[in-house]
Amino acid sequence: MSNTPALEVENLTKKIKRKLIIKGVSFTLYPGEVFGFLGPNGAGKTTTIRMIVGLISPTSGTIKIGGKNVRTEFTEAMRHLGCIVENPELYPYLTGWENLEHFAKMDPSIPKDRLDEVVTQVGLQNRIHDRVSTYSLGMRQRLGIAQALLGKPKVLILDEPTNGLDPAGIREMREFIRTLAREENLSVLVSSHLLSEIQLMCDRVAIISKGAVIRTDSVENLLAEQERVIWKAEPLSLAKEILEKETEVQEGLDQTLITLYDEPQLPIWNEKLVTAGVKVKEMRTQLPSLEDLFLEVTGGESID
């Protein structure tokens, strides 16, 4: 990971009709990393992304793409950017190829053979000369990505890229994004409200809620902190009674108990159980899903 940032967002705020919707969001993307932008519906993901791509102007704060300020050096900044905001909406009455040609013509630095490259990259060769109105959602999503990759961007911004895709499509998209980051050293910003998705695809993640970033960290760090131990023991009620004297205990599925992962204490707890005549059948650690994590950091608040 090089240390010149591909995308820098600093203290971004946005007021819409006197209501503060984005409250000072900051984060940085480095080349070759996939960055997750995670938050529930209405958290402000799309609004932040719209500001980054220059569709709406921020009330305050700065955005730099490849070192160029989006506000003052718009065209230079946009050279380094490819994006899909919300749905991949292309011209339905044009063919996929014509759509790509249309957008390629808007940037003279894009060579002619780039079109073939991106079409092959997203695997749309067979249908590229059909009208977009005949495309399935998955194909539109691919064409949207092809369109975003046309200008060989340094930063790729995808707003909910797996929205509406089937499990196979989601998996494919995930692998595609990882490959782009790895092989072309692209920085990818992916927004999602699906926690499992971010977990599988991203290196780092910013959790956003009600217009503010409440946490930015690598995915492993966040997960490690919340590691749990699952206990399988008999009789369960006795085991629970004993463990509760030591730590917080939750009941899990399938006759299990869940406690925090506290390495030095584990053998002691185990010993206590054994001496009390509890048969400990299984003891294993488990990473929580980001789902649990999210509820943890946001204090389980409801969606606004």
Binding site: G54, E89, P92, D107
Partner: peptide, 14 residues
């Protein structure tokens, strides 16, 4: 209304 404006205005063109 078709949403294509989002792609049109995120090009390196004023």
């Amino acid at each position: 209304s078709g949403g294509t404006i989002k792609l049109l205005l995120t090009r390196p063109v004023k």
